[in-house]
């Protein structure tokens, strides 16, 4: 019976991953970074990393989960949780509905239970197709619940961040998700929980200034833009052009804010190594 559900979950994940990940065969894909065209086959084979310049294009949450999890281990958490409109912001419910239909997501984060090479963990993956993966109450609540779930079940927590910042339409409630998620991570870590924060392109604003910066281990994808203020705001503020590579993952590594940069093809290997290193002797 368990076997049956595992297979079903696996098919569901594969279906959702295909829906957001795959490029129709025969089409050519232009890289948004270097402009070079590649065949759909090459693009998909490299997990949507440009075969010419190595640009790591943003990918959907289910697609990413399908790349890193052991087959059949994906079990979504809080999959029915829906966003709300706490300010009663005009037009927001309609925007949410339209984005939900377009992406097949309820909001900008998918949380799940899963394994990497047999090591169980709680996962959260943000998806920038959903209103720039901005953090509203639904994102804050799901990340918080994921941390609490990991704490209750003594599991490591792995979050893939991507975000344009706060969800403006949810105003102050959006801001408060920074406090809520940071507090939940802090609690989890005080109890000995391992939190691995993986930053992907782009991670900015309130997500950078809360849970995404609090990892015991800090990792990022190559070329990811990571910062508090966006580059345009900074350029307007200081009245000068920012240097090439500013706020990119490589720049953060140089300035001491990351442990390592992990290419997309190596997430499974690196995460599995880290999970194994924390399995014995650690307090989780």
């Amino acid at each position: 019976m368990n076997q049956f559900f595992a297979r079903r979950r696996d098919r569901l994940l594969t279906y959702q991953a295909m829906r957001e990940g795959k490029v129709a065969a025969g089409r050519r894909v232009a890289c948004r970074n270097c402009g070079a065209e590649s065949s759909a086959l090459d693009w998909n084979r490299s997990d949507q990393v440009c075969p010419k310049c190595g640009w790591h294009a943003p990918i959907g949450a289910y697609y990413r989960l399908s790349l890193i999890l052991d087959p059949g281990t994906f079990q979504e958490l809080d999959e029915k949780l829906q966003p709300a409109n706490p300010l009663g912001f005009p037009g927001y419910p309609a925007k949410l509905r339209a984005t939900q239909e377009e992406t097949g997501l309820n909001d900008a984060v998918v949380t799940a239970l899963g394994s990497i090479e047999g090591h169980r963990a709680v996962f959260g993956v943000m998806d920038s197709r959903f209103i720039m993966a901005s953090m509203g109450t639904a994102v804050g609540e799901k990340v918080t619940r994921a941390a609490e779930y990991a704490q209750r079940h003594k599991l490591p927590l792995i979050l893939f961040a991507a975000s344009g910042g706060a969800r403006m339409q949810e105003g102050i409630f959006s801001l408060m998700q920074m406090a809520k998620t940071a507090a939940a991570i802090q609690r989890f870590q005080e109890k000995g929980g391992l939190y691995i924060s993986c930053l992907t392109h782009p991670t900015t604003g309130g997500v950078t200034a809360s849970f995404a910066s609090l990892g015991d281990i800090m990792l990022a994808e190559p070329g990811a833009l990571i910062g508090f203020a966006g580059p345009r705001v900074i350029e307007q503020t200081i009245g000068e052009k920012l240097p090439e590579g500013f706020q990119r993952a490589e720049y953060l590594l140089d300035h001491g804010f990351l442990d390592q940069i992990v290419p997309r093809s190596q997430w499974r290997q690196v995460l599995s190594q880290l999970l194994a290193l924390h399995e014995k002797g650690g307090r989780t």
């Binding site: 920074m178 849970f211 910066s213 609090l214 910062g227």
Partner: peptide
């Protein structure tokens, strides 16, 4: 971002 996050935590 890190400095603010640490303040919150």
């Amino acid at each position: 971002g890190e400095a603010i996050a640490r303040c919150l935590a």
